[in-house]
Amino acid sequence: MKNFALIGAAGYIAPRHMRAIKDTGNRLSVAYDINDSVGIIDSLAPGAEFFTAFESFYEHGHQLKRSPSSALDYVSICSPNHLHHPHIAAGLRLGCDVICEKPLVPTPDLLDELERVERESGKRVFTILQLRHHEAILRLREKVANAPADTKFDVDLTYITSRGRWYAASWKGDPRKSFGVATNIGVHFFDMLHFIFGRVRSNVVHHSSDDKAAGFLEYERARVRWFLSIDAGDLPDEVKGKKTTYRSIVVNEEELEFSEGFTDLHTVSYQEILAGRGYGLADARQAVETVHVIRTAQPSPAHSDSHPFLKRLSS
């Protein structure tokens, strides 16, 4: 049984990490968040210590090191995006391996810095890339791998997840903290595309605003038109009033069905990490580089490689 700490215990994604820790037969020893709405702990780890001051949490982690039976083995991080880098570094310096939600960091330079802290501490950083464990994604990856080497797939990626006014008032609506909508809701899709179709060859942005982004990516094995949005007005007419989220991946005019199978992917990710097969900093680099370019690029005029949904914005 491994001892875990959790940073960001009041966040949306934290319960999935708590469940994964429990379901893999391990112990959540201590949790931290500046907010105290963490009643979910009662059903998953009622014995865990809890702190709302990081200094107290960090000191407690050091105290636990005095006994081999209580020393922390892992720190799991579910804090806001802009805090991932300092929280990862703190976990490594506590003498723990770290499991962090995506995006790990906003820039390749910060990945380089974390590699240095890994070497200094002798510990590892792992990230949750749950789509790499989704059965439909794995089947598509195998199909691409088995296709003739010169085959180039045409892909349309569309993801619209409606967010209310609270979003703009939260850290997620602040690009200094979330790093923008393409990073906050899109980074795992860009990792998925890299996982299936290889390295990025071209990265063009056609639209970038507070609530949506779109562009074109060419990979070794695919040409991808992508559109990401948190604006309910972008939902297709057949979905409006019925669902608040629309997720679509079309490969060579064939819809990829992957609406199901997400429930336990965090637990699968933990199982793989604990078995020594987790995804680390090197695995996260391509997606970090992709969203860094998207975030800093000057949008180009839409053209034939533009996502079809862009036409609706100008109509």
Rank of each mutant, 00 (worst) to 15 (best):
K152H: 13
A287Q: 06
E120G: 00
A297N: 04
A71G: 04
R132L: 10
E118F: 05
D191N: 06
P308T: 00
L157D: 01
G261T: 04
C100R: 08
T161N: 12
I88P: 00
D211N: 12
H60R: 15
H84E: 09
N3M: 03
S69W: 10
L228G: 02
G276T: 08
L157F: 00
G122C: 09
S67G: 06
F195I: 04
E289L: 09
V30I: 15
G215E: 00
R199N: 13
G173Y: 01
E257Y: 13
G164Y: 03
T52R: 06
E135K: 15
V200I: 11
K212S: 07
T158D: 02
I185E: 01
A5E: 06
E257G: 12
E101V: 04
T263G: 10
A284G: 12
S70N: 12
L310R: 05
F227D: 02
G280L: 04
S209Y: 02
S170N: 12
V239L: 00
I99F: 14
S248L: 10
E218W: 02
K123N: 11
I137S: 14
I230E: 00
K102I: 04
L129P: 00
I40M: 13
S269K: 02
L217F: 05
A31I: 10
F4E: 06
A71I: 06
D237N: 07
P68H: 10
D112G: 10
S43I: 01
H292N: 10
H207V: 11
G25A: 04
F153G: 05
Q130F: 13
E238R: 04
E218P: 01
L104M: 05
D191G: 03
A89N: 04
C100T: 11
R223E: 12
